[in-house]
Design a protein around this nucleic acid. Structure first.
Lengths: 336, 336
DNA sequence: CTGTTAGCGCTTTCAG
DNA sequence: CTGAAAGCGCTAACAG
C-alpha cells in the first residue's frame, strides 16, 4: 500500500488566501452565504475546488457549540424491528445536516450509563434512545446536559424530555381483546424478556383477566426461539388455541413448529405477532400482527431534535403513533 | 458548588481547580495516568466526580488530530445481511474507544461522493465501506486524506487501502457447481441488481456454461420480491429445477410461492440462498445457503482500523473470509 | 458587505 | 512527576 505522505489537509485559511479574502469571509461564504456578495462567494467556491478543502466540523463545532451530531442508542442493531426507525432517523437527520452516532447498549441496563457518558463526550446536539431511560442517574444526567432527548418506541408519564412511541400495555390488551372477541379462550404468550415486550404481556394478561401460559425467552427473540417457545407452550397446554408473540420472527418460528407437529393454522391454532415485519404479509400463512410505524417513529424523533436544535418549539413533545392489528391468515383473516 | 446550571458544563479547567492541580496535570491524570502520581490521580478523580465532568472529545481531537470516530457507510441499514457486520464493527470499535458514525449511501452511486464528503468533514480516524469504492474521484480522495480505509464484503485487486470480504464470483460458481454436481440441469437465478449480487450471477453463469433464466429485481431483495421472482422464473421455464437466490429472505419468498403453486421442495424444485440469515436453518424446509461470516468481516475491519490508528502494521491488508455452502432440506439435505 | 479580535476545551511541546 | 505556553481550525461578537 502506498500511503500518501501526511501532507496537511487544506484549511479554511488556505482557502481564504487562495481567494484573496479574509478567513472569516471565507467562512461566511460557505456557511452563511446571505451575508456575502455573489462575486466573493464565487471566488471562495473556486478556491475550495482548487485546494480540495473539506470543512472541519469538529473545529467549527468547538466554537459554535453545535456538533451537528445526534447520538442514537439501540439495545442492539440486529433487532429488525428497529431498523425502519434507525433508517428514517439517519435519513431525516442527514437531510438537515446531522449525522447519527450509533451506540448499542445491549439489553443490559448497567451498560446504559457507560454508553451514555461515551456518547455525551462527543457533545451530540441531541439524543435518541430506543426505549425509556430507566436509571435515575441517567435521567438526571440527561436533564442536566440540557440537550434535546427523545425516548422512542414506548410511552410513559415521566418523559426525560420528549417521547414518541406507543403504549405497549394497550397493544397487549388489544390483542387479548381481539382473541377473546373471536371466542378463543385458551390463550398463550410467547415473549422476549425485554421491558417493552413484558409490558405487552401485562396488558395481555390484564385484558384476559387471568394468568396465561407463557414462554419467556431472552431478547431478542428469533425464529429459532419461536420453535422452542411453541414446544414449551404445547407442554403447558396441549390444547392451546391462540398465542400472542412478541415479534413477527418469533411468531414465524412458532407457526413453523406448530405445523411440523401437525397443527393447522388457523384451524387448530391462531397466532398473532408484533411489528408487521416486511415478511409478515408474505409468508404462508400470512401473519396477523400488531403493526407499528417504526419509520414514523424515526422521522418524528429526528424532527423533534432538529426543531429544538434550530430553536423552534416542538408543538407536541409526546407523540403516540399508535398501532393497528392487521388481520391475516394466521387468525383466519384474508391473505392480503 | 450547590448551584447546578445547565448553561455551562464543567470543563477540565474546573476539574483542575477543584483538584488543586494545573490543567495539564488533570488532563494527564485522565488520559495518560502513567505520567502522574497516584495521589494526584486520586484527587483528580474525586474532582471529576464532584464537578460532574464529561470530557469533550471534540476539543481534544482538534489538537491531537484523533477524533476516535470511524465512519461506516452501508447501502442501507435495512439490509439484514449487513447487520452482523455493523454490530461487530460497533462493538469492536467501542471496546477500543472508537464510535461509529453511520451513513447510508443508498444503492445510488452518485450519493456516494456526497456522503463521503459529509463524513470526511467529521474527520474520522478511519472509514469502513460496505462494498467497493467505484468512483475514481472517491478513490482518489480517500487516498489523499490518508486515513485507513477498509472496503468490505467484496474483494478486488485494486483496494483503495485494506479489504476484507469474499469473492462473489466464486460464490456464484460454487453454487452452480453444486447444482450441476447433483444433476440439476435446468437452472435459474433470482437476484437483486446490486453489484455484489450481479457478480455472483456472473460466476454462476460462467460455471453453468450458458445463460440461465434470470429474475432481476431492484436491491434490496425481500420475501415479497421472492414470490414475484418465482412467478417470473416459472413463466420463463415451467420446468425449472434449481434456483439460486441473492439473499435468504428472497429465497424464502421463492419457496413460499413455489409451494403455493403446488411445487414440492426439494422434490420438484431446489433452492439455494445467500447469507445464512438467522432464520435459514429454522424455516420449513430449512434453507440451503452460502454462509458468510458477516460478524467476522466487521470484527476484522474494525481491528484493521484500530491497528493502523495505533501505529501497528496490518499483517494482511486483504483478507478473504471465504464462504461455505451449507446444505439443508431445500436441496435435499438434512434438517439441521 | 468585510475584517479584526478572541477564544471554544483540550493536548502538544518544551521546560523545569 | 508537574507546569506554562502555544495553538488545533473554526466561528461569535463586535467593529468598520
Amino acid at each position: 500500500m502506498s500511503r500518501v505522505s501526511p501532507l496537511k489537509a487544506a484549511t479554511l485559511h488556505d482557502v481564504a488566501r487562495e481567494a484573496g479574502v479574509s478567513l472569516i469571509t471565507a467562512s461566511r461564504a460557505l456557511s452563511n452565504p446571505a451575508l456575502v456578495s455573489d462575486k466573493t462567494i464565487e471566488r471562495v467556491r473556486t478556491a475550495v475546488e482548487a485546494t480540495g478543502y473539506i470543512p472541519n466540523l469538529l473545529a467549527g463545532g468547538l466554537k459554535s457549540r453545535r456538533s451537528l451530531m445526534v447520538a442514537g442508542l439501540v439495545p442492539t442493531i440486529s433487532v429488525p424491528q428497529f431498523l425502519p426507525t434507525v433508517k428514517a432517523l439517519t435519513e431525516t437527520l442527514d437531510a438537515a445536516g446531522y449525522q447519527l452516532i450509533l451506540g448499542q447498549s445491549g439489553y443490559d441496563h448497567s451498560r446504559e450509563q457507560k454508553l451514555l457518558n461515551t456518547m455525551l463526550s462527543r457533545r451530540p446536539d441531541g439524543i435518541v434512545i430506543t426505549g425509556l431511560v430507566h436509571s435515575p442517574a441517567a435521567r438526571e444526567q440527561l436533564r442536566r446536559v440540557g440537550i434535546p432527548v427523545v425516548e422512542t418506541w414506548d410511552l410513559s408519564d415521566r418523559p426525560v424530555d420528549m417521547m414518541v412511541g406507543i403504549s405497549h400495555v394497550k397493544v397487549g390488551s388489544a390483542v387479548a381483546g381481539f382473541f377473546l372477541a373471536r371466542g378463543w379462550q385458551r390463550l398463550g404468550i410467547a415473549t422476549g424478556d425485554d421491558h417493552r415486550a413484558m409490558m405487552r404481556r401485562e396488558g395481555f394478561i390484564a385484558a384476559a383477566g387471568r394468568e396465561v401460559p407463557s414462554a419467556i425467552v431472552p431478547a431478542p427473540s428469533s425464529v429459532e426461539m419461536g420453535r422452542r417457545a411453541m414446544a414449551e407452550l404445547l407442554e403447558k397446554d396441549p390444547h392451546i388455541q391462540a398465542v400472542y408473540c412478541s415479534s413477527d420472527a418469533f411468531a414465524h418460528g412458532l407457526m413453523i413448529e406448530a405445523r411440523s407437529r401437525g397443527l393447522r393454522i388457523p384451524q387448530d391454532l391462531v397466532v398473532c405477532g408484533f411489528g408487521d415485519a416486511d415478511f409478515a404479509a408474505h409468508i404462508d400463512p400470512s401473519l396477523t400482527t400488531a403493526r407499528v410505524d417504526g419509520a414514523a417513529i424515526g422521522r418524528i424523533a429526528a424532527q423533534m431534535i432538529i426543531d429544538r436544535c434550530q430553536g423552534r418549539a416542538v408543538p407536541q413533545p409526546v407523540v403516540d403513533v399508535g398501532f393497528q392489528i392487521v388481520e391475516r391468515e394466521s387468525t383466519g383473516g384474508a391473505a392480503a
